[in-house]
Simulated scan of single mutants.
Amino acid sequence: MAGGLLSAAEAAVVDGPLPGFHPALKDELTFPLAWGRSPIRDARAWRRAARAAVERHLLVERQDEVPFAPEFTGRFPGEGYDRELVTVSLTRYARVRGALLTPHGRGPFPAVLLLHDHGSRFDIGKEKLVRPWYDDTRLASATAWAKRCFDGRFVGDALARRGYAVLCLDALGWGERGPLAYAQQQALASNFFHLGSSLAGLMAREDERAAAFLAGLDRVDARRVAAAGFSMGAYRAWQAAALSDHVAAAASVCWMTGLKELTVPGSNTLRGQSAYCMLHPGLARHLDLPDVASIAAPKPALFFHGGLDTLFPAEGVRVAYDRLRAVWRARNAEDRLRVKTWPRLGHVFTAAMQDKVFSWLDDVL
């Protein structure tokens, strides 16, 4: 190195897709709007400023004025709950169909906005979490996915049997809004950017609107709506809690880390592709990932991590948990934050984990 500059060889692309000077780029990320680093010392004022920063980087305008105009199918009885499909306008761009489960009995019920994962499996979306009574062609894929990730359970059906109204919709590219091919993801995302928009921003806006729709149903107690998900769905859940006043609590399983600890050689994130569903350009110049999640404080929030989860190194999870605790503590709400690492588990949402999440939801809602 001469004069502080890298040589031509050092400045090349190394470690796969990382540039040789990636440590210098990382050093420039100081997250100046993060709680404790921001000049804003009032926690409520910080929350407003941090949320505004996220809003600016979504690149998709709020869609609050768009009528939902829901269309419901007939109800089909399940074991302790009814099932129906509902088609709604989450944005001005498209109609989206989702699965809606309603417990038997008298409402209004607590509710869960259930957000599906990525998994590089696009033929199913909402069907990953709700058994597809309406589509036999997707049942085999859905059953296999439940066996792989959820100990054979359909999490949405289990929640409905427990007394929760459940809404689960397809994200763009999955299920009835796809299927997207794995290699098409970057092209889809880059075309959003070319159009001055964002794939991740659209997903965030749709999740906000889905929470508002669910909270507005007569059968739902609007004060008791949670967001929950696994993997990418976990990211979506804490993001929805940060951005939506309709979400009262969030349960996130297997998606929380510090950004610097995530972007290391060999990380799945560096492949691109799935990363674009969770990438808001420029936001890292202001806030780290746990800082964004902390906008949800003082709402009840749960974060579970598998100690053998290779997608999220332990150091990144530790950094993130420390940052989360600091903000909930500043809101005098540390008792509303639950974080846990399951040392012998990987990237899964097992029945034992589900039972803990369900009990936690019972307590906080």
Rank of each mutant, 00 (worst) to 15 (best):
F122M: 11
S190N: 05
S231M: 07
A314C: 02
R148S: 04
E28W: 13
A242G: 04
T350E: 12
P39N: 04
T102E: 07
F193W: 11
L308W: 03
R48S: 14
H286P: 00
A284T: 14
L114V: 06
A94E: 15
R224G: 00
T310A: 10
G163S: 03
Q186R: 10
C254F: 00
D322Q: 15
S197W: 04
V264E: 01
G216N: 05
Q184Y: 08
M1V: 08
D123T: 08
D335Y: 04
L159V: 08
R44H: 15
P343T: 05
V112M: 07
H116R: 13
E71D: 05
E176R: 13
A241S: 09
V166I: 11
D335H: 14
L59C: 04
L324K: 08
V130I: 14
V130W: 12
D335Q: 15
S141E: 07
L90C: 14
A181G: 05
R318E: 13
A140Y: 00
W328K: 12
R51S: 01
F192I: 01
L18T: 01
R62W: 01
L308H: 02
R121G: 11
R41F: 04
H57C: 01
V348K: 12
R75I: 01
G163L: 01
S120T: 05
A111V: 08
P265F: 02
A24I: 02
A189G: 01
F31H: 08
P300C: 07
A171I: 02
E10W: 05
E176H: 12
G175Q: 03
D335K: 15
A242T: 01
F31Q: 06
V348A: 11
K126W: 09
R318I: 04
P298N: 01
I40E: 12
R106L: 11
G196Y: 10
A249Q: 09
G346P: 08
A34I: 06
S89I: 00
Q63M: 09
V264W: 03
P265N: 03
V155G: 12
L365H: 06
A297D: 05
K356A: 15
A297N: 03
T30P: 08
A226Q: 04
G266V: 12
L302H: 02
H305P: 00
A187S: 10
G20H: 14
L324H: 10
D42F: 02
C168Q: 01
A234V: 02
C277E: 09
P343L: 08
R97C: 13
E261T: 12
H118Q: 11
S197E: 09
P108E: 05
P77Q: 12
